[in-house]
C-alpha cells in the first residue's frame, strides 16, 4: 500500500506545530497502525530526520497509551478499539490519512502526537480510590454479597482505560465520561459507598480545575470510547453530584 500521511509535528510544548506531509509505500495491510508508524520512523531516522513521537505501550488495547486522532476520530475509523488495534487493511491504497494529537487545553502537547494526560491522574488522585488497609487482613472475595446488576455495572465502568478518547472526540473537550466511569465503578460497590460523597465532589472539582469543557450530551464520547462506556454513567454522575451537594 502507498499512503499519504499528514502528521502534526511540534517540537515541544512551547513551539508552534504544523501538519507535515509524508509519503510511505510498501505498507502491508496486515500491519497495525503503530507498526506503520514504526516503519515511517525507521525511514525518517535513515534520512537523519527526527522521528515522529507518539505514545504506545502494551499494544493490545489495554493500557490506553496510544492516543492518535486519525482521520478525524480518536483511535481511527473503527469502533471499540484503540489505535494499536487498528490495522492498515482498514485503509485503501493511495489514501490520505490525517494523524493528529488528542486536542484539549487540559491535554497539552509534549511533542508531536504525545500529549500530557496527567490531568486524568490528578482527577483519580482526588478521589478515585477506596481507603482500605491492603497490607494483610485479606478477606474472602465474596464476604460482602453484591447484587449481580451492580457488580456488572461496576465492572463495565472499570473497563475505562483512561485513554482520553472521550475528551478528544467531544466537541467541548469534556472529561465527563471518564470521571463518570471512575466515580461509578466505586460508588456501585459497598466498599466504595463509604467515601461516595467526598469522591464525587472532589473528582468533579478537580475535573473543572483542569480546564476540561462542559458536557452538552452529544454522545460522541460514548461512540468513540474504545471500551464503549455508556452515557448512563454520566447521568449517574449527575445524580450523585446533586445528592452529594445536598448532603454537604
Amino acid at each position: 500500500m502507498k499512503l499519504f500521511l499528514k502528521i502534526w509535528r511540534q517540537k515541544n510544548s512551547q513551539s508552534k506545530g504544523r501538519i507535515v506531509d509524508y509519503e510511505i509505500d510498501e505498507i502491508s495491510p496486515d500491519m497495525s497502525f503503530l507498526e506503520m508508524m514504526d516503519v515511517l520512523n525507521e525511514r525518517i531516522i535513515e534520512e537523519d530526520g527526527d522521528p515522529v513521537a507518539f505514545d504506545h505501550d502494551c499494544r493490545e488495547g489495554i493500557c490506553g497509551s496510544c492516543s492518535m486522532f486519525i482521520n478525524g476520530e480518536p483511535h481511527g475509523p473503527d469502533k471499540l478499539i484503540t489505535t494499536c488495534q487498528l490495522h492498515m487493511r482498514r485503509f485503501r491504497d493511495g489514501d490520505t490519512i490525517y494523524i493528529e494529537p488528542f486536542r484539549a487545553r487540559a491535554f497539552p502537547i509534549i511533542k508531536d502526537l504525545v500529549v500530557d494526560r496527567t490531568a486524568f491522574d490528578r482527577i483519580q488522585q482526588s478521589g478515585g480510590f477506596i481507603s482500605i488497609n491492603t497490607s494483610g487482613n485479606t478477606l474472602d472475595a465474596n464476604t460482602i454479597p453484591i447484587e449481580k446488576e451492580n457488580a456488572d455495572k461496576a465492572f463495565d465502568a472499570a473497563t475505562c482505560i483512561g485513554c482520553g478518547a472521550c475528551v478528544a472526540s467531544c466537541k467541548n473537550s469534556s472529561a465527563m465520561l471518564f470521571v463518570s466511569a471512575k466515580v461509578s465503578q466505586f460508588s456501585l460497590l459497598p466498599q466504595g459507598k463509604v467515601e461516595a460523597t467526598d469522591r464525587v465532589l472532589n473528582m468533579v472539582n478537580q475535573m473543572d480545575d483542569e480546564g476540561f469543557g462542559n458536557c452538552t450530551n452529544t454522545g460522541a464520547c460514548h461512540v468513540e470510547c474504545p471500551k464503549g462506556i455508556s452515557l448512563d454513567y454520566i447521568a449517574k454522575l449527575n445524580r450523585e453530584y446533586v445528592k452529594a451537594n445536598l448532603k454537604k
Binding site: G17, Y98, E100, R103, N172, S173, G211, V223, E224
Partner: peptide, 17 residues
C-alpha cells in the same frame, strides 16, 4: 476555550448528531 487549537480534520458526523 477548552480546545484552543482545533483539529485539521474532525468527523463529528461519525459520532454525534
Amino acid at each position: 476555550k477548552a480546545r484552543p487549537v482545533t483539529y485539521a480534520m474532525y468527523k463529528g458526523s461519525r459520532n454525534s448528531m
